[in-house]
Write a protein that binds this DNA or RNA. Sequence first.
DNA 1: TTCACACTCATACTTTCGGGTGAATTGAGT
DNA 2: ACTCAATTCACCCGAAAGTATGAGTGTGAA
Lengths: 140, 140
Amino acid sequence: MKKTIFLYGLALALLVLIMRMIEYRFLVRDLTLEFYVGTVAVFFTALGIWVGLRLTRKQVVVINSEFHFNEKEQSQRGISKRELEVLALMAQGLANQEIADKLFVSLNTVKTHSSNLFTKLEVSRRTQAIQKAKELSLIP
Amino acid sequence: MKKTIFLYGLALALLVLIMRMIEYRFLVRDLTLEFYVGTVAVFFTALGIWVGLRLTRKQVVVINSEFHFNEKEQSQRGISKRELEVLALMAQGLANQEIADKLFVSLNTVKTHSSNLFTKLEVSRRTQAIQKAKELSLIP
DNA sequence: TTCACACTCATACTTTCGGGTGAATTGAGT
DNA sequence: ACTCAATTCACCCGAAAGTATGAGTGTGAA
């Protein structure tokens, strides 16, 4: 946002310069007032559109891809960090053994985590866990 | 989009009117050229921002809510309707037995469908199938 | 220090999944 | 009538997933 304001100010400064140049030509070459104003109008319309896009781009990003982790659900259900890691990998379609390899723990450990996770999420299968976790914003 | 163009044209017409009025005042009350140009600049900046917002708003809506079923993928991979039904229920976190009950078929049938589905989706686990199906827009 | 808790792992057992094979039925198109 | 794809179901087997229980370790708080 600060960048936007800065760039906007810069554009304004630039405009003053251009204005002076046009004004000079206006006096010398006798261009019409309409042409002068038209140029300014086009320039500022473009500038405005650019600013408008800048302003909304962030919103677009926010709505589409940004993920807000739901800490309340995590603490209320007493879900630990390790369990969340298992959950995330689970959501990527990995098998328990693959998760175990990625986390450098044994298969049994992953089973324990996932089992506790299911209890805390009140589900009984990994597919349901993934669904519920998404609903609760525990994973993107 | 047509509306936007129309409104833009209307705004331009309005601008011409305003320009004439300002020009009149300019001649009569002896306003400076800078003030004149500044007004036009502000006006068009606002207009540009407005247009910019208009242009992006639609994108946001489209990206967020609409789901377009991908018929090409379905036919190219030779996925049948029944298999899609199984897939949909699978994505809801249901077990094979539960899917069998919902579709009034035997567990073995569901197994056959899901097995064929995995082959067609080039995956080996149901969690991966759900993921891939979403990527391919076969399910929302 | 003691206590709680997260993390780790193991063993044993049950259930669910997934692969492979084969087969009967049906409906649509040739 | 014949073919072909879709759908249905069965049986077997091994792998993966999930449940239950117990237990060792480390960390941070009381």
